[in-house]
Design a binder for these strands. Structure first.
Lengths: 225, 225
DNA sequence: CAAAGCCTTACTGCGACTGTAAGTGTTATT
DNA sequence: AATAACACTTACAGTCGCAGTAAGGCTTTG
């Protein structure tokens, strides 16, 4: 059964949502610690987040941004703020849907089903600048095509991606490749990095692996098109 | 540059949409042969379809259904029909977004950007009952995980998927595997099918490959959960 | 300019996938 | 009930692509 998390401060609304979702066959979970909602949601790992914008302590926008930065949970904004600017802002932050209250039950359920379907099986896709990487198979989606990376290249790219744009040390990369913290075969790492670079340029990706002398490697985004 | 196709009968609206999209940096294409719009759209292969529901000759629903059955183009419904039932129907047919006229320019553009981002790199995903198959890499997404199928198994699954639930002949399957219409190595085909079956059951997929004695093979959906 | 750090290419071993072969199970017809 | 046609599965061997090794070239820094 799919889990849906609800972030909503108004008690009545929250209860109504919960019972409605449960009737529709979902497991509903209410999150009420708004200040660190993003963390809680990450830990809960629901299949969908329904988020209000007007919350005490913290803005819903903030939660949405935090959440989208570290996870790929689908987020549905359900709010009474019907300003166009709010909607645009939400979508820009990566929200998957924006609905205004009051909202008919059927519409909400239909949109929920839609989002869930859309995310089906995508739970392990990592997102980079202009590409997606499947963390399990190392299938890489970029420039409107897809490739399966060799395992080592996939692991490297995953590790680099996890480091955002901070440089990742050779040690960490070795750990990612062979799970050994101790001995580092610098050359083998070099070779694997070299291969990754080559496939990335062959695919015409916007991001490149660059060495940061003395401290490791990082992904660098080339000037936008 | 992204191509956006517009299916809209009212001239003024159409022109306005076109110029708006072009100003926003898209290539806009108007489709006016409504009767076989689905075919034309398939041939055009735009990155997104904006579809009106009230059309002469044919219903927009029909176009949406046809389109979604043979392609995976994203469809945005833009219509003056504001009945809830229409919206639900459209979403059920696989529409990706439903907006009602009149619609602010910003909202429309935001939703378009949203959909395009969402579909990025997904252009070659085939959809089966409860799973997705990447047509290029044969990465299979099912039960919330992913696997890369061996090439032959991928080809077979793709061919079976193309046959919907009609049986696919051994000849066609051989063609898909080895591109030879002539000679058929029945046994090799058997072996590959056998392997595909095994991996499908190992993955716990809802669909199975079943033999239709004398006429080929087809995908069969097991009883829903 | 020299040394440290970084990069790349070529080569070999290993593992995964494919086709072959052979044998078992199942359905339909006489 | 028997048989033939069709369908299925397992084991084995050849092939191909990936990983690690080795060796040599390039670039940055002091």
């Amino acid at each position: 059964m799919k889990k849906i998390a609800i972030v909503e401060d108004e008690v009545y609304m929250r209860e109504e949502l919960c019972s409605m979702l449960e009737k529709a066959g979902y497991a509903a979970l209410a999150v009420t610690a708004f200040a660190d909602a993003a963390e809680q949601l990450t830990a809960l790992a629901p299949d969908l987040v329904i988020l209000d914008l007007n919350l005490p302590e913290i803005s819903g926008f903030q939660i949405c941004r935090d959440l989208k930065q570290k996870t790929f949970l689908p987020v549905l904004i359900l709010t009474s703020r019907d300003q166009m600017t709010d909607e645009l802002q939400a979508l820009r932050l990566g929200a998957d849907e924006y609905l205004t209250k009051p909202c008919r039950k059927e519409r909400l359920l239909a949109r929920i089903a839609n989002i869930l379907k859309r995310y089906e099986g995508r739970s392990n896709l990592l997102e980079g600048q202009g590409f997606l990487l499947d963390r399990v198979t190392y299938t890489l989606y970029t420039n409107n095509t897809s490739t399966v990376l060799p395992r080592n290249q996939g692991k490297l790219l995953e590790a680099l991606l996890a480091g955002a744009d901070k440089p990742v040390t050779a040690k960490q990369l070795c750990k990612a490749l062979w799970d050994t913290t101790e001995f580092i075969d610098g050359n083998a790492l070099q070779v694997n990095l070299s291969r990754l670079k080559k496939t990335m340029t062959n695919l015409g990706m916007r991001q490149k692996v660059v060495a940061v002398r003395g401290s490791g490697y990082r992904l660098e985004t080339e000037d936008a098109p």
